[in-house]
Simulated assay, not measured.
Amino acid sequence: MFQLFSQLFKEESDIIQVLESLSNSGNIDLLLSFPMWSRFALESRNGNIIDIGTKISSLCIKWYETMVSVVTNQSNGENLVVIFCQQLSAISFVLKERNDIYSKLLKIFKKRISSLPLDRLFLATSFIHELEPHIVKDFKKFLLSKLKASLDNTTDEDTLIKIISQICNSPDSSLRVPNRLCQVVLSKFWIFLLNATGEVKELLDNSCVKRVREKISQLVCTMKDKSIKTGLLSELVEYSNDRLINCINAVIGPEGKVITNEMLDYFRENLRGHSNIVQNLDFFYSKWCVKAVDVQFYLDDLTEKKNNSTFLEMSQPRHWSIHEKIIQVSRKAYKYKYSQTFVNVFEANTDEETQKKRASGVAGH
Score class of each variant (00 low, 15 high):
1 M>E: 14
7 Q>K: 14
22 L>Y: 00
26 G>N: 09
26 G>V: 05
30 L>R: 09
34 F>V: 00
44 S>H: 04
51 D>C: 12
55 K>T: 07
61 I>N: 04
62 K>M: 07
69 S>D: 11
69 S>G: 03
73 N>F: 04
76 N>T: 11
76 N>L: 15
83 I>T: 09
86 Q>N: 11
97 E>S: 12
100 D>H: 05
103 S>H: 01
112 R>S: 13
118 L>W: 01
127 F>N: 11
127 F>C: 10
129 H>A: 05
142 F>M: 06
142 F>Y: 07
147 L>Y: 02
148 K>Q: 08
149 A>P: 09
150 S>Y: 05
158 D>C: 13
166 Q>C: 12
166 Q>Y: 14
168 C>G: 00
173 S>N: 13
181 L>R: 04
182 C>K: 02
187 S>E: 15
191 I>Y: 12
192 F>A: 14
204 L>P: 02
211 R>I: 00
213 R>E: 11
221 C>E: 13
234 S>F: 08
243 R>Y: 15
245 I>F: 04
248 I>S: 00
249 N>H: 00
256 G>H: 03
258 V>R: 14
269 E>P: 00
270 N>A: 11
274 H>P: 06
277 I>K: 08
289 C>S: 10
298 Y>L: 07
301 D>H: 13
304 E>G: 04
307 N>K: 03
311 F>E: 03
312 L>Q: 08
335 K>D: 13
359 A>T: 05
361 G>R: 03
